[in-house]
């Protein structure tokens, strides 16, 4: 069996997860809910470990736990505080289960470091419906979420804040983060949600280009990490986080340099160019 055969499926799983996390990250960031990524990922990791310890496949347990957590957070209207509690509860559960159950330690490490090379066709089967659903729902979701943030009084006066769409978004995000955690690891998922969205939101001149830049950064970070982790025999998750950090920092630096150059040529203040 060639290396291509061995790594083709994990590569595809990671590619899909990275693009989906980058995309949902832009909406989470627009909603100021980016901390959700870390909270839900930690809870999903804890759910995966609890499931494994109880004989339930991680691929069922992690999304189920993430969905319950996201629903509870929404019903209790805890905001960022809810994600803080999730991060702490998830971390504590993961660490305690890792210390006290057979295989727990190995799985906990895999969830934190990323277990991309061990993902199977089941992961692909779980990611594919989301890869279809997210682009189809993108326009409706982004419109509803942005209107709720920019025109809350207008929405409220017209009785229009679409709670069903908001709930759908939160469930989609929870599912994606759970699958991202199982595929890429907790911190890599968080990095793919936060860093491309932050960079694109800061630099892009409009929403369409922000989506393109965000997806390109997520894709670029993933491709670099996949290559480097294999070549240098390094754990995938930390390499992905590092590549996302460096790629986003370079993009911002390049943008600043281009703006300064424009300023020098045209005399336009570079923050307005």
């Amino acid at each position: 069996m060639s290396a291509l055969d061995v790594f083709a499926l994990p590569f595809l799983n990671g590619l899909l997860a990275s693009l989906l996390l980058g995309g949902i990250g832009l909406l989470l960031f627009a909603r100021r809910d980016w901390l959700a990524a870390l909270g839900i990922s930690q809870i999903a990791a804890a759910g995966a470990l609890i499931g494994t310890a109880s004989g339930i496949p991680a691929l069922l347990a992690a999304p189920a736990t993430a969905l319950v957590a996201a629903d509870l957070k929404r019903r209790l209207q805890l905001g960022a505080l809810g994600y803080g509690v999730m991060i702490l509860a998830g971390w504590s559960t993961v660490m305690l289960l890792a210390a006290n159950t057979p295989l727990g330690d190995a799985l906990a490490h895999a969830l934190v470091d990323g277990q991309l090379y061990f993902t199977r066709v089941e992961h692909l089967a779980a990611l594919l419906p989301l890869a279809v659903a997210l682009p189809l729902l993108w326009k409706r979701l982004s419109r509803a979420l942005l209107r709720a943030r920019l025109f809350p009084e207008h929405e409220q006066a017209n009785g229009q804040p679409d709670r069903r769409l908001q709930a759908l978004f939160e469930w989609l995000a929870a599912l994606l983060l759970a699958l991202g955690t199982l595929t890429l690891g907790v911190m890599a998922s968080f990095a793919l949600v936060l860093l491309p969205a932050w960079t694109a939101s800061r630099l892009a001149p409009n929403l369409r280009l922000a989506v393109l830049l965000c997806l390109s950064l997520a894709l670029g970070a993933y491709l670099i990490a996949f290559e480097l982790a294999l070549r240098l025999d390094q754990p995938f998750g930390p390499v992905l986080v590092a590549s996302a950090l460096i790629l986003c920092a370079l993009t911002r630096a390049g943008h600043t340099a281009a703006m300064k150059l424009t300023h020098e040529r045209t005399g336009t203040p570079h923050d307005r160019a």
Partner: peptide, 20 residues
């Protein structure tokens, strides 16, 4: 209704053009 808030929301972290 078309409602204008006293301080319309203009977040600094959203990549929205005026057209968007």
């Amino acid at each position: 209704f078309a409602v204008q808030a006293q301080h319309p929301h203009r977040p600094r972290d959203l990549p929205l053009s005026a057209r968007d």
